[in-house]
Design a binder for these strands. Structure first.
Lengths: 107, 107
DNA sequence: TCAATCCATAGCCAACCAGGTATGAGTCCG
DNA sequence: CGGACTCATACCTGGTTGGCTATGGATTGA
């Protein structure tokens, strides 16, 4: 029941968390401290969100001294794209069925 | 802050709600009663979820006698596709920047 | 008209979770 | 070594919400 896109929807549903992921996509690799600035929430909260993003495969971390650099893993969005494509596909096939039906009725 | 894709992520994050939308995509127009079967939850819960899906623009309803028919509005997924494309675009442009940098360094 | 059916709303409750503060582990520098 | 800094974890709490039952409005059919 719970497939690959489930964790993505659940993880990206939170605005704060999604904003962090967006910043990593826009700005590239960043430290926790840099992300905390203008995040609107405290540093521990940022860390927790980054942990969930990492658990979802949306980001990866790299330790260097005192700093932890996070970066977006864009490939992780694939199941999301697949899901939307699948939904569109169902819709399209039903549309095709209707067209077929109309075409057969036309004869 | 809260843009078009926000409500979509929030609405589709719930598994039960997403399953209802999926069924409407796969099977086409259905009544509340038909959706309640094999939904795993009670009818009022199904009605509430359908209400939220409607509020998000993901489904539309049509009343006919005692029945209410719901159907998927696939176009509503567009902001989701746009968002993923935008994220991919940022990633790609940063990759291009890196390539440019490497190219210039190579000279 | 009266019973049955379909659906939505209201009210309630338990579970989840995003936010905070406190704190500790690890690292750099003087 | 000692202090400052970076980050993660632990713990608590208030708000949100997904589930339920109860109920009522609307419609159909006998």
């Amino acid at each position: 029941m719970s497939e690959a896109h489930d964790v993505l929807f659940r993880t990206l549903a939170d605005p704060t968390r999604r904003a962090l992921f967006e910043r990593l996509c826009r700005e590239g690799e960043r430290t926790v401290g840099a992300l905390t600035e203008r995040a609107g929430v405290s540093q521990p909260v940022v860390s927790k969100h980054l942990g969930l993003l990492k658990q979802a495969g949306l980001v990866r971390d790299r330790h260097q001294g005192r700093h932890t650099y996070y970066s977006a893993q864009l490939g992780a969005l694939a199941p999301l794209v697949d899901w939307t494509s699948e939904m569109a596909g169902f819709w399209q096939s039903r549309f095709d069925d209707l067209e077929d039906l109309l075409k057969r009725m036309d004869q």
